[in-house]
Design a protein around this nucleic acid. Structure first.
Length: 284
DNA sequence: TGATGTGTTCTGCT
DNA sequence: AAGCAGAACACATC
């Protein structure tokens, strides 16, 4: 479940591996509902539209990955829950969940050819191609809330004063604040000792300043640790980052709170699960 | 075989 | 209008 730190980690990985490279060939392996091509791109199919373009830069907005290509086109990627990029040797084994393969033009002295692969077992992820001039009109990008790292405490306070809703669903709402998902929302609320059902507009200036600080700290620490990828697969967690070692409430239902010893609870709030300490995070 | 769980976004209701 | 619940997405597991 990639959230901001995991997406940032992927973006940094792409910068190290594919920026500056020119796409030689794209293979769409599976009949992919995962792919969208803007109608304005002259009816070109995905692979034909990408062929020959150079990857100029890779950036992140919320949980969205923006791959800026030559010729005023952007490949906009959302990993959703299980989407993943892998930069691997072409000889690495593949399975039916490898949906798209990208081959690059490489200098001839390079020994083994590497390939960028998009794999997504659940196929919720999306790869979309848009002309740069239409990209930011698209729903999903145009309506995103602010980036947590770009907010001052004053911005954060006025944002919270502008709505009257439970804080947990608000933090998950990408049009309210971009980048947080269930893990970092729960962790930040715990650190700030805020009950997930508290109403956004009822929180004090001081509490909100603390919350913003914790959100920024948690995201920053998670980015430093290359994210947390807690991926539910037959009830077993598979990790790709290291932040899961520092989780204090997420997936800790029934375990004692590190501050007060009360048992962490899991409740359905806003039709999503919320993990919190019933003693440290009071509704009041 | 069918129910369930998973996060995000979309739709539709109040 | 704003905020909520529920659906849909696709697949694996029980």
């Amino acid at each position: 479940m990639p959230e901001l730190p995991e997406v940032e980690t992927v973006v940094r990985g792409l910068r190290k591996t594919v920026v500056g490279k020119t796409i030689r060939r794209v293979k769409v392996q599976a009949p992919a509902s995962s792919i969208v091509v803007s109608p304005s791109l002259d009816g070109l199919v995905f692979d034909q539209c990408l062929k020959g373009r150079t990857i100029d830069s890779v950036t992140r907005r919320g949980k969205n990955i923006l791959i800026d290509l030559s010729g005023d086109v952007t490949l906009w990627v959302h990993l959703k829950m299980t989407g993943k990029f892998q930069y691997v040797d072409t000889t690495e084994p593949m399975d039916r969940h490898h949906l798209v393969l990208f081959d690059f033009k490489v200098s001839s002295h390079r020994r083994s050819a590497k390939q960028l692969r998009f794999r997504d077992p659940r196929r919720f992820g999306r790869l979309r191609l848009y002309r740069d001039d239409e990209l930011w009109n698209q729903p999903g990008l145009v309506d995103l809330g602010p980036e947590p790292f770009e907010m001052s405490p004053e911005d954060f306070v006025s944002l919270f004063r502008s709505s009257h809703r439970m804080v947990k669903p608000a933090l998950l709402d990408q049009t309210f604040l971009a980048g947080l998902g269930n893990i970092y929302a729960d962790e930040s609320l715990y650190l700030a000792r805020i009950h997930p059902r508290r109403i956004t507009s009822s929180l004090s200036r001081k509490k909100l300043t603390e919350l913003l600080g914790h959100i920024q700290d948690v995201l920053d620490k998670a980015i430093g640790l290359m994210g947390t990828t807690v991926y539910t697969f037959s009830g077993v967690f598979r990790r790709t980052g290291n932040f899961q070692n520092y989780l204090v409430v997420y997936a800790k239902e029934g375990q004692p709170c590190g501050r007060c010893g009360a048992l962490i609870v899991r409740q359905r709030i806003g039709s999503r699960s919320a993990h919190f300490c019933p003693r440290c995070q009071r509704i009041r």
